[in-house]
Design a protein around this nucleic acid. Structure first.
Lengths: 249, 249
DNA sequence: CCCGGCAGTTGACCTAGGTCAATGACCGAT
DNA sequence: ATCGGTCATTGACCTAGGTCAACTGCCGGG
């Protein structure tokens, strides 16, 4: 839906295949597919495993194939704030910049599709549309980060929780290529502690607000990790967005 | 300091001239300069004047020449959160996306250097290095936004104030191409209300924390808008960053 | 010169959410 | 089966910062 870029139409569309890991690439020819296979590799991480550490040089970039990755920063005294949450198809790592500006940690079992940094940079030179696509994705991330700033700075604990559930529901629906509808069931990928760090709260407050939302009928819990949203619009109402949509990458 | 991009070296360096408004462009030839003059125009805004409104289509992009611009979002019930603060040389507007995701408001007298959207998009097609530079700037903004998320989610009111003063001091020093040193005097571009909205606080808390920092000797005030930082390191200590640097564009 | 309005400060009070602590549920290891 | 650990929930309490209100100083207009 956006203006197409210029050169190499035959490789152009692969930007998405590359950086969002659309593994099945129906519009690329055999030569392209072979090329992609040659430069991709995969790596898996266990829950809690560190993918990159703040300030450390990372020698790869890639995209999430399975699982959820948290991005967080820690203050000197141990206070932690999550600054992003990556779902399948999200990009990880920064072009042109080796040093990681935060910790990236696998919150579930994670599979990444990886390019070595030199290889990715070569790709960037050879594939003009890739840079354009990266720019667009980075702009989306920036929007998401700014939405989250509103949440962190101005929302109540209850609104934060509701926003978070909607965020997860939306992202998981997108991953499953399913529509988000009333009654969705979803598995929360984060522990209470991770949620607290994402929302700028404590685990006790997270726990209390979940109980309160459950009592109010806004959510239903089967166990601590599995929930159902009976009425999306009602929850969005509680989340308190004017337009709606607390997105974060 | 970053890997150079490919085509058109003779126009390449002008990416900075264009999007960061380095008006004096010593490395461009007369043809380039004439070209730039032909497509630039300027617009000024009074304090409080709206530059773009959330959800509204904007027909221009550009960069700040003078003054300070706030980017903010407002919740349905009027709660406001500032999500960015633009100083001279910062870029405003989003390539490939006409709809503004927040309000942009002049907080001081502001002069913008402006390109019409179609013109900018033509420029983007013709100048490969421009996209690369935009990507880099967007990544910087994303970093800054994430730093601010840490502040909003995890810092105390006092830490927030100290971080804010350092942010302003750094940005103003950069604009003046001056080094940031102990004893800097600076004019606060924001009202107490704007600061509160930037930091996720109320004006009363902002006022109280300023008084407290003054009493503690961390800052000195001549009047409500003019201050001096006697000891940068001491203030940074109060700001509570591990590494430091709460940057936001 | 006076008056009204706005920005800022300060005080008194209140409350959302943090802190601390006890308890329960659910492991996986012995 | 038992133990130790992690995760979650809940209660009792406390405090940082929000709310409400009074007051000041400043500026611009009549």
């Amino acid at each position: 839906m956006k203006p197409a870029t210029t050169l190499r139409p035959e490789r152009e569309r692969c930007a998405d295949c590359l950086i969002r890991h659309r593994a099945v690439c129906s519009h690329c020819g055999p030569a392209e597919l072979e090329f992609l296979d040659a430069i991709k590799s995969y790596r898996t991480f266990k829950p809690g495993e560190e993918i990159t550490a703040m300030g450390q040089e990372t020698d790869f970039l890639g995209s999430v194939v399975n699982g959820v990755v948290s991005l967080s920063r820690i203050l000197a005294d141990g206070r932690r704030q999550m600054v992003g949450l990556l779902f399948p198809s999200d990009f990880i790592g920064r072009p042109m910049r080796a040093q990681a500006p935060f910790d990236a940690i696998a919150v579930t079992d994670v599979k990444l599709c990886i390019f070595s940094r030199p290889r990715f940079e070569a790709l960037l030179r050879d594939t003009p549309s890739l840079e354009s696509r990266l720019l667009e994705m980075t702009l989306d991330e920036l929007d998401a980060a700014r939405d989250w700033m509103v949440l962190l700075g101005r929302k109540t604990a209850r609104e934060k929780m509701a926003s978070f559930f909607l965020l997860v529901a939306r992202r998981l629906a997108a991953v499953a290529r399913a529509e988000l509808r009333d009654g969705v069931e979803l598995e929360l990928p984060l522990t209470r502690e991770d949620m607290a760090d994402f929302l700028g709260l404590t685990i006790e407050t997270v726990s209390r607000q979940i109980s309160a939302l459950r009592k109010a009928g806004a959510i239903e819990l089967t166990d601590a990790r599995h929930m159902r949203i009976p009425d999306i619009a009602a929850l969005a109402e509680i989340a308190g967005d004017d337009d709606d949509g607390g997105m974060i990458d």
